[in-house]
Amino acid sequence: MGDTELHAAADVRAALAAAADPARAAGAAAFFKTGPGGYAERDVFIGVAVPATRSIVRRSLSLPAGDVAELVASPIHEERLAGLLVMVERFRRAGRARTRDDAARAAEHERYLDAVRTGRVDNWDLVDATAEVLLGEVAFPSAPVDEVEPAIVAGLVASDSLWSRRVAVISTFAAIKAGDPRPTLAVAERLLDDPEPLLHKAVGWMLREVGKRVDRGALTGFLDEHAARMPRTMLSYATEHLDPAERARYRAMR
């Protein structure tokens, strides 16, 4: 039934298959660029809506770690997403004040890093649903942060993998939410010349959040220094919420 707890990867796969929609799968395959030469070439969608996936995940939190890893290693996108979201939810629950379990959080964090390094976190939605929590909340647990660019984040920024670099960028959202813009600015500066449009969007988004949530002056100071060399999409995202005249001024600097 819809609220029955799921105890194995096979149960999760069956629940996802029951919620699958071929028409939605075709649309997702096109939207996520799975065709030849696309950034998600050969990814496989079965057409499960994200809310339905999250509902299944809530029934799957007692899965053994090996079963979660099995889902994360799946060729099916929604199965990878489900496995990763189980990790996110278990990490969050282990961080609750009354029942805090730092060992459990560390275990989920390490499993996530393994998934990133082995190429399992390989689309922007998978990154964006996980990096802030499973990397960012470990790398940037408070503000001001102890290290502006911890070694694990720096290593991902330098990776040849587009998705690892996006993980690094999105992880800094945790620092933004903690009130410290410096990690985002440091990572953004290192990625100004990145060739990938999906990185331009991610960096611009995080810069925009710096200006909205923490310090508008930190954003405009970064733009004063770097707008002329920023890729067009990055600059567009970063300046979205500035007033029209200021936005136009920065965009004219390119």
Rank of each mutant, 00 (worst) to 15 (best):
A18I: 10
M1R: 15
M1T: 15
A19D: 11
A23M: 08
R13C: 10
E5G: 14
A18F: 04
A14G: 00
A30K: 08
G2F: 10
L16S: 05
F31G: 09
A9T: 04
R13M: 09
A29D: 07
A18V: 12
G2Q: 03
A20R: 02
A19V: 09
A28T: 12
D11N: 04
F31Y: 06
A8N: 05
A18Q: 02
A28F: 00
A19F: 10
D3Y: 08
F31P: 10
A20K: 01
E5H: 15
A23K: 10
A8K: 01
A17R: 14
A26Q: 15
A9V: 06
A14C: 02
L6P: 00
D21K: 03
A20C: 03
G27R: 14
P22M: 02
F31N: 08
A29K: 06
A26C: 10
D11M: 00
D3F: 04
A8I: 08
A15L: 04
A8Y: 02
E5S: 14
D11L: 06
A18G: 10
A19S: 13
D21M: 00
A29G: 11
V12K: 01
A15Y: 05
D11S: 04
R13F: 10
A30Q: 11
F31E: 01
A25E: 02
H7Q: 00
G27N: 12
A26N: 10
A15M: 02
A15I: 01
A15K: 01
A14I: 05
E5L: 15
A15D: 00
D21S: 04
G27L: 11
A23Y: 08
A30T: 12
D21V: 07
E5D: 13
A26Y: 13
M1S: 15
A23W: 01
A29Y: 02
A15N: 02
A8D: 05
A15S: 08
A18E: 08
D11E: 02
A25K: 02
T4K: 12
A25S: 00
E5R: 15
A8P: 07
A8L: 05
R24H: 08
A17I: 12
F31A: 08
R13W: 03
A15Q: 02
R24W: 11
D11Y: 03
T4A: 13
G2R: 14
E5M: 15
A25D: 01
D21Q: 07
A8H: 01
D21I: 04
R24N: 12
E5P: 12
P22E: 07
A15G: 04
A17P: 04
P22S: 04
A19H: 09
L6E: 07
A18C: 07
A29F: 00
A10P: 06
A29C: 13
A10I: 11
A19W: 12
R13V: 02
H7I: 01
A29T: 11
A14E: 08
A30E: 13
G2N: 13
M1C: 15
L6R: 01
V12T: 06
P22L: 08
V12N: 00
A9N: 05
D3R: 14
P22W: 00
H7K: 06
A9W: 03
T4P: 00
A26D: 15
A17T: 13
M1D: 14
V12C: 00
D3W: 12
A14F: 03
R24I: 12
A20E: 09
D11H: 09
D3V: 13
R24F: 06
P22T: 09
G2L: 09
H7T: 03
R13K: 12
